[in-house]
Design a binder for these strands. Structure first.
Lengths: 210, 210
DNA sequence: AAGAAACTATACATGGTGTGTAGTTTGCTC
DNA sequence: GAGCAAACTACACACCATGTATAGTTTCTT
């Protein structure tokens, strides 16, 4: 496995960005199946051999692409409303908007990573990390709901977090948007209804927390 | 592509069943990635070339395996309670039990088919058919809920069906059971709570249908 | 016993990833 | 601007997967 060091000059950085953008473009159009190294090479105008001067393997290209996309789409900005929300229920609404608005843009990459998983150790590692991050986010949200006494009966912090995590999975979002034609706004609204009714205790039925 | 005709003698049927069982076993243990034709051949004790005397391609093997499994697991019996239920809400409970109890047993095959999709036209066709079948089931259930006046406000027959369909997806079930360690019973109960609260209108808030 | 069906062994075409090597272009530095 | 190193290309190769062709062997049927 070739060792890739920090790029030095501008030419190298441009080539690298061109490769990542080409891969991203391919994932959005070709649907994830056609992402061979040859296709990325051809689309980016770099020789196939040249790809391996920037990315040690196909899996490593995915890892870097994932970070690249999160940077370009400004993940931090999409998560902000959830953190800044003044109540747990508002945070829950922000979660639904993030799931529908942001996660849906990751469909191509995530499907490709999932498909490469198992055969590719790098892809597997990326998958585990992303899942852990998302679950951690949901755990924080569920914890806040519990703190404010909003979590309804059968749910615990752990089970509510698991549920939220599974509902923000790219597979589910892909199913509803791509397959069933839901728009991002429809999905956000319906996810909001779903998690509010499922997780939030009715007004008369809450433990005495302010 | 080799043409496969109806098997004649018993030997052939036994070999065929041995291949399918070996493939199934591999999917349950190896997790779907290690399902190469070589692996199936080795596990079943048939030569690699021999596989192609029973299945025209890897994708066709999946198609036949899917039917084989649905037969062995008795799909019809698992769907029965849903159809026989005396009310739409009872049918919804039966749906949750079917999703958690039956769909979870398909995890291995479905993941493998999904992974083969795109490169394999047969796998793609199987996928579309299975999705259509499941969606049809959910559409019938949502229709019955509407008929009995139980569907709550933002939901229509179509959107409720889409939601149910996405919630019974093998990916979601796999996430919650394999990744988060939910048991089949826990999943069934929590799915029941989720869809009841989300879809069913509260008692005082229903149109006048008996 | 004979013939057909089922099966094996082996070889090959094709297409994918990843590496090795030699040669060429580009950019940086003095 | 000359020289040098980094970046890049072209080509070849090893390896592994699917699917096919062909010839020969076992097993079932009649």
């Amino acid at each position: 496995m070739t060792r890739i060091v920090e790029p030095r000059n501008r030419r190298s950085r441009d080539t690298r960005a061109a490769i990542l953008d080409a891969a991203w473009r391919l994932l959005q159009t070709e649907g994830g199946a056609g992402l061979s190294m040859s296709a990325v090479a051809q689309t980016s105008g770099v020789s196939r051999r040249g790809l391996y001067l920037h990315f040690a393997s196909r899996g490593q290209l995915f890892i870097d692409l994932f970070a690249h996309i999160n940077e370009r789409l400004d993940l931090h900005a999409s998560l902000d409303p959830m953190i800044e929300a003044s109540s747990a229920v508002d945070a829950l609404d922000a979660w639904a908007r993030h799931a529908a608005g942001y996660q849906s843009r990751l469909i191509g990459v995530v499907r490709a990573v999932d498909r490469a998983r198992g055969a590719d150790l790098d892809a597997e590692a990326l998958w585990q990390q992303a899942m852990a991050d998302w679950h951690h986010l949901c755990l924080a949200l569920a914890g806040r709901l519990a703190d404010e006494g909003m979590l309804s009966d059968p749910w615990t912090i752990a089970t509510a977090a698991d549920l939220l995590w599974s509902l923000m999975s790219v597979e589910l979002i892909d199913d509803l948007m791509t397959e069933q034609g839901w728009s991002s706004e429809e999905l956000a609204e319906r996810l909001r209804v779903l998690v509010r009714r499922t997780l939030i205790a009715p007004a008369g039925d809450r433990p005495d927390v302010p």
